[in-house]
């Protein structure tokens, strides 16, 4: 992938992180998570999981979640399990929920209703 392309995907997916104390981070994902943008999500989550014990992924602003995006989330979850970290999803995006349901991946993830709730729980 060329440099131009990686800059250009920044228009499609939004990734922001906020620290909640020393142990928890909240990643807010907005926009479209597809073949082109999923690698950004993947590396972003890997970085956060290396830095914090609890990583909350807020998917409320997700407007598209394709197979590649689901794989990125799934792999981040696997990584969290291996490293004894917690990956928690907050998801009220209808499109993202539909994708998780249609692929029967929902059961693999831990969900919380709200971000404060997800952050509050100890590991």
């Amino acid at each position: 992938m060329t440099k131009v392309d990686s800059d250009f995907t920044a228009d499609i997916i939004g990734l922001q992180v906020a620290e909640h104390g020393p142990d928890a981070r909240v990643v807010t994902v907005t926009g479209e998570v597809d073949t082109l943008t999923a690698p950004r999500l993947s590396s972003f989550l890997t970085t956060q999981l290396a830095a914090a014990r609890v990583v909350v992924v807020d998917l409320d602003g997700v407007e598209f979640l394709g197979s590649a995006g689901l794989s990125a989330l799934f792999e981040a979850n696997e990584l969290a399990v291996r490293e004894h970290r917690a990956l928690r999803l907050v998801c009220h995006s209808r499109i993202a929920n539909r994708a998780l349901e249609a692929t029967a991946l929902r059961e693999h993830f831990t969900f919380a209703d709200t971000v404060p709730e997800a952050v509050k729980d100890p590991l």
Partner: peptide, 17 residues
Amino acid sequence: DLDAIDDLRMAVDDLCA
């Protein structure tokens, strides 16, 4: 219906990718 729209969007994305 909304679910059918989302499913088709995702299926087409998946297939093309």
